[in-house]
Write a protein that binds this DNA or RNA. Structure first.
Lengths: 230, 230
DNA sequence: TTTACAAAGTGTCCTAAAAACACTTTAAAG
DNA sequence: CTTTAAAGTGTTTTTAGGACACTTTGTAAA
């Protein structure tokens, strides 16, 4: 008989806010709910936490189920716990947001789940408190991208400077002067310019860069705080 | 029979990181644990969430139990969920941090709970993962104080400019030039200078100020982001 | 093959905020 | 009344960020 026997046990859900980036647009992966209540409505990918796993593990498991991906950037956002948030039964939900390279996800899997990528400015009405979760994740992403080099999680390993700029313009929802942008990014000294240019039918082919995580880590002790000073 | 019947139910704990400020020092309220395991060790104030309340409500209830206070600043920090974090039984814990005016708390209550205020730089070894929670709360407080006028929660309604400065020096753990500090705070236009000076045995009595929440709210739409620009 | 076009790439000046810096005023205590 | 310790007050310098326009490149169409 446990010391804690007298206390309530709660259902603990996980909901995943999955961000991607494609064609200069920030995107969100949503699934069409296949069961009642709210069957047919759009929803975040979710699931329930098991007793034998941490919530980070549960979130990773649930994200993998839909995208086929492992080792992606994923972070706890917040716990949503209004008593009546789920009409079926009282649950609390831990929202996790993740940043994935949209090229990597498993297209077959997302078809199975009736999932679809949405532009961030065209998010439909979602079930329960999921719109609130998305809004909070959107804010967190802005904060995180200001202070940490997480933007690269949304891009392929090799990317062009204009791509990177358009990503930050999408995240911050405001245009950036390209000369100022390049100056600031270059000053951070965390990119490696490759001896390669972008492929395809570009009018003028842009140089490719990659993010150098080691260079970034070396700077951690200097107080450098990515795009802003501490 | 619920749709969700097959899923695990978890024990959900709440732990409170309670900050105060006194004599130029940031402080933390800890209790001496009165039961096994880890009886006699220092710990955050905690409790368990009930099925019929949101976690915010649970956290407020638990904070009130120890301090006698209601309506204090309190915010969810993060969920800690390592499977073996509590040796008694698997629990997940939601850490909440709160900022209180140290003069307001109920001294009788904290005696009953064997609670004590500690200087932030003299926090003892705590049970479970509580030291980790405190460290995260400390970081969050720095962030929050940079972007929002929460510092005033730690002060009495009327305070002097040197008090306010020493609070920010404690939060940011770095000295601030008083002329620069006054200029920045004054520029925010959220303080009201009172026609009153501090009481007591001060060498030169300083003017009292109060925080004007209305003035701050009027600025919210201007993009002003407290001590930093967005 | 030449020309038009659209995107990549590149430097300088200006403005505003933050940092550095020192003396005067006040009131309690001896 | 003299000492002392903290409150209160402006100016200059430095730095970061923002504004701004032309040249280069490579594809595609004439």
């Amino acid at each position: 008989m446990s010391l804690y026997a007298q206390y309530d046990r709660l259902l603990v859900a996980i909901d995943c806010i999955i961000f991607g980036f494609e064609q200069d647009k920030l995107k969100l992966l949503l699934i069409k709910r296949g069961f009642e209540p709210e069957k047919g409505k759009w929803s975040l990918m979710g699931g329930f936490a098991n007793n034998n796993e941490s919530l980070d593990e549960a979130a990773t498991r649930i994200l993998g189920t839909l995208t086929g991906l492992k080792d992606v950037f994923m972070e706890q956002l917040s716990c949503f716990s209004q008593v009546d948030r789920d009409p079926v039964e009282r649950t609390i939900s831990l929202a996790y947001y993740s940043l994935i390279n949209i090229e990597d996800h498993d297209e077959e899997l997302i078809k199975q789940y009736d999932a679809q990528w949405f532009d961030m400015d065209q998010i439909p009405d979602l079930i329960f408190d999921h719109n609130e979760m998305v809004a909070m994740a959107r804010e967190r992403l802005k904060y995180k991208a200001t202070h940490y080099p997480v933007g690269f999680e949304l891009l392929p390993p090799k990317f062009t400077m204009p791509q990177l700029q358009s990503l930050y313009e999408a995240i911050f929802e405001s245009p950036i002067d390209k000369r100022n942008f390049i100056r600031r990014i270059t000053a951070l000294d965390i990119l490696v310019k490759l001896n390669e240019k972008q492929k395809g039918k570009a009018i003028k082919k842009a140089f490719l860069y990659r993010f150098d995580a080691d260079k970034y880590k070396q700077q951690l002790h200097t107080g450098n705080n990515f795009l802003v000073k501490p």
